[in-house]
């Protein structure tokens, strides 16, 4: 088992021993399992998946939407430092869809670089949330 700690600005969201964690990094998705070599990497916005036991099927994976951070693996402890991580259960798909559409509208209306970046950030965030909500629905 590997200890998985999910640390966000809003507190520690997850801190348990698990079998496998799937993480989105700049270089693509990686899976971290017990005995992983020491690694420090940068996470991007994407979906974090947690498989608690080896016998868990794909539809039992827990998903979190995240918007980027730092990953550290050492001595069978995986610490992920992200601004925020939303559990699939906490995401309302309709709301996320609304926010996603709104962000697109903002992007079209953006006049300067700053508001454009802000809108793009919102789009990235909401698209990940939508993705996570979709994953959950599919497995139901």
């Amino acid at each position: 088992m590997i200890r998985f700690e999910l640390v966000t600005l809003g507190g520690v969201k997850f801190g348990e021993d698990v079998y496998e964690v799937l993480l989105p990094t700049l270089e693509g998705q990686i899976g971290v399992m017990p005995g992983h070599m020491p690694l420090i990497s940068v996470a991007t916005h994407g979906v974090i998946g947690v498989r608690r036991k080896a016998s868990d099927k794909d539809d039992m994976i827990e998903y979190y939407a995240t918007n980027g951070g730092v990953i550290e693996v050492a001595n069978d402890v995986l610490r992920v430092l992200v601004d925020e991580a939303d559990n699939a259960d906490d995401i309302n798909e309709q709301e996320a869809q609304k926010a996603f559409d709104y962000a697109h509208k903002l992007k079209l209306e953006a006049k300067d670089q700053v508001s454009l970046e802000h809108a793009q950030g919102m789009i990235d965030r909401q698209s990940v949330r939508l993705q996570v909500a979709g994953l959950k629905r599919r497995h139901r």
Binding site: T25, L26, E27, M37, P38, L39, I40, S41, V42, G68, G69, V70, A74
Partner: peptide
Amino acid sequence: VTFEPSVAEVLDS
């Protein structure tokens, strides 16, 4: 320890 993609980028983050 392996750094991905690089030490500089990890430090930035």
